[in-house]
Design a binder for these strands. Structure first.
Lengths: 237, 237
DNA sequence: CCAATAGTGTCTATCAGACATTATCTA
DNA sequence: TAGATAATGTCTGATAGACACTATTGG
């Protein structure tokens, strides 16, 4: 049989296939706390419970998995997050009552200010304090996914400035340090933090200042590809 | 509608779903070179081309994605690799001629000695020098997946001793250093390498020695969970 | 004893931690 | 001017790089 014939006859539905979803753990920083976006499920299974924003891939619309995840996030936040990366893929026979299922999970960051207005207008989406998830009964294995995302984000806070994407495009160094401290759950030496960022030349000084009450702090923005930079030496956990 | 009714009516095949495979990049070290296991495809599409060991999930057999990947590897190597981790998930409309497809990719390591006999007995599987893949026309986007796996493995060689899993259970420090050097493509300072492993207490001295020609080297084995250890400071790339 | 490989001693360079100090802002 | 926040100076400590040195083996 030629490949052409083979492809003509091929039909996915002749086989037992798992169901596939994309789900995203979208973090932000607000009120000196880490928050994660959750959605109240309108459909079975787990109707009424909180879960991660996500859903099925639209084969006709989505070109890639990341596009699918972004599309789902955009529905809730109105914009695509400035940072998104694949986290892990969960799959198994028992994680979804509908059958063998695969969830391709993403971890993303966004500035609170950039999407709060829209999120408030969407009735089923809400920021939740990461520290207070203990009380909630989350859908599927979404709690475990959030924990994995948190762990990864903590690692990144130790060796990169990826957490900057939880801030607006322009931000001050004290703000950035605060975000790292919130993620890590502990204070960082100001000098160490600034020194390494300066030395690696990861930020651009916009020349502007931010009046935050007392002495004004310089406003910076990320250089392109600064998020890929990895410090040789980690901050201590 | 109750959840029970919903689940009774639910049928995956009522929806357009992508096809899902698992694929693994299995590395080993041999003849001072990094090698990757490839399989000659017996079926369409890409019949006759080399590709990663993998295939469809057997919903009746596999409990998780990792189990599916291990099962596929075992078919070619006769054993499960001592190290396997999820690498990334590739998905898109165009990566497979059969339709929208998702590949859950794993990266794994194994000792050459532990599986070479069986691999030689399997007619369609073969170790390929990683440095000589340029000549091959690999199936699907498998070349890109291998490159991602390589990049990740290089990172791990800088901050962990995961590469030890490309060696037999018992190995010498010079052997381990050599594996790291092969992965990194450059020499490492012997003293630095040994110092950090000793200090982190990652290995157990078995008391045995290996006669490799000249002075005998001590044989070590990994401690449990040493593979999760991450040095605070990387080797320099 | 020689050659080769295993393993150690030790100096330097780099960079994070600690914390004191200075600078700049508003009230 | 006082108080607060931003930013810097500088010492210490940990650890990787460099490389010379010693130790142990087989021939």
């Amino acid at each position: 049989m030629s490949e052409k014939e083979f492809l003509q006859k091929y039909n996915v539905k002749d086989f037992d296939v798992p169901l596939v979803t994309v789900d995203s753990v979208l973090f932000t920083c607000h009120e000196d706390q880490l928050k994660v976006l959750l959605v109240e499920r309108s459909n079975h299974p787990h109707q009424g419970q909180w879960g991660l924003p996500g859903g099925f891939i639209d084969l006709a619309v989505d070109k890639t998995l990341e596009e699918a995840a972004k599309r789902k996030l955009k529905e809730k936040t109105s914009i695509e997050p400035p940072y998104i990366e694949q986290l892990e893929c969960k799959g198994g026979a028992d994680r979804d009552k509908r059958g063998w299922s695969v969830s391709v999970c993403f971890s993303a960051l966004i500035a609170y200010q950039d999407c709060q207005a829209h999120i408030e207008s969407v009735s089923d989406a809400k920021w939740h304090f990461v520290n207070e998830l203990g009380l909630l009964d989350l859908a599927f294995d979404h709690r475990a996914i959030i924990n994995t995302a948190l762990e990864r984000l903590r690692q990144k806070a130790l060796y990169s400035i990826v957490p900057a994407y939880a801030l607006p495009e322009r931000f001050t160094l004290p703000e950035l340090q605060k975000v790292h401290e919130i993620i890590l759950g502990q204070p960082i030496q100001k000098k160490s933090f600034r020194r390494r960022i300066e030395q690696a030349e990861l930020l651009i000084d916009t020349g502007e200042k931010q009046a935050s009450g007392k002495r004004q702090a310089s406003l910076y923005k990320m250089k392109k590809s600064s998020s890929e930079y990895r410090f040789v030496r980690n901050l201590e956990a």
